[in-house]
Nucleic acid binder design. Structure first.
Length: 230
DNA sequence: GCGACAG
DNA sequence: ATCTTGTCGC
């Protein structure tokens, strides 16, 4: 049985129920003595027929040292994405390929940085949280677009503004580069928001997005391209 | 009731 | 997500 069959629901209704069932498992605080030395970014590239329902996808995961930014390891996985894209259920399109790619990592990840939301999600269970709960690895959600509205944070790097949903703060809009659109950070699993922001800022050296997601993005695209050429 | 809506 | 190179500007 493939990873996909274990993770992808048969319907939208089932997917929602699965999220509601798993959401309570999210831990919003780090484990004792949590001090990751590495961060692992994850991303998925879609073949040209995306964003329909089924598409060939290439997932990539890249681990970097938090102190130096050096690339320590990477892995990829090619697969199919069959679940339709529905805001709020986005994770089901990328989860199987991402989990397969994580399996190929020689060293176990210490902190996952997903390109999407964690608990900044209608059911508090976005891609980052889903990845964290399934793997048990602390995770952070870093999205390029919020699911709801937000107030613009101050222009300096490090400035934040709360992301609120149903009266609850679920994350922050974080300015990683002065004068550039912020990114949207939320707890995935086993981290707190302050720690998450700290690591995200560390990973954003010269660009708006974390180096981990930039590297994973490049690797996933290259993998898909080389697949087409062969 | 009418939009908004991660990638 | 994807279609897409060079180019204007700090």
């Amino acid at each position: 049985m493939s990873v996909a069959e274990l993770v992808v629901p048969a319907s939208v209704e089932e997917a929602v129920r699965l999220q509601e069932r798993l959401a309570p498992l999210v831990e919003r605080a780090p484990p004792p003595d949590f001090a990751p030395r590495t961060a692992t970014g994850l991303d998925v590239a879609y073949s040209a027929d995306a964003p329909g329902d089924t598409a060939v996808v290439a997932a990539a995961v890249v681990t970097v040292a938090l102190a130096s930014g050096a690339v320590l390891a990477s892995a990829t996985a090619v697969g199919e994405s069959t679940f339709p894209y529905v805001p709020g259920l986005f994770a089901f399109r990328e989860l199987p390929a991402l989990l397969a790619a994580l399996d190929g990592l020689a060293e176990p990840p210490e902190l996952l940085v997903a390109d999407g939301h964690g608990i900044a999600h209608p059911r508090r269970f976005g891609l980052a949280s889903h990845l964290g709960v399934l793997t048990g690895v602390p995770s952070i959600g870093v999205a390029k677009t919020p699911l709801g509205g937000y107030d613009q944070p101050a222009d300096e790097r490090g400035a934040t503004t709360p992301l609120v949903d149903e009266g609850e703060q679920v994350g922050v809009a974080l300015r990683t580069r002065a004068g550039v659109k912020p990114v949207f950070v939320s707890i995935g699993h086993r981290v707190d928001l302050a720690t998450a922001c700290r690591h995200v800022l560390t990973l954003c050296r010269d660009y708006r997005l974390p180096e981990t997601t930039r590297l994973a993005d490049q690797l996933s695209r290259r993998t898909l391209r080389e697949l087409a050429e062969s």
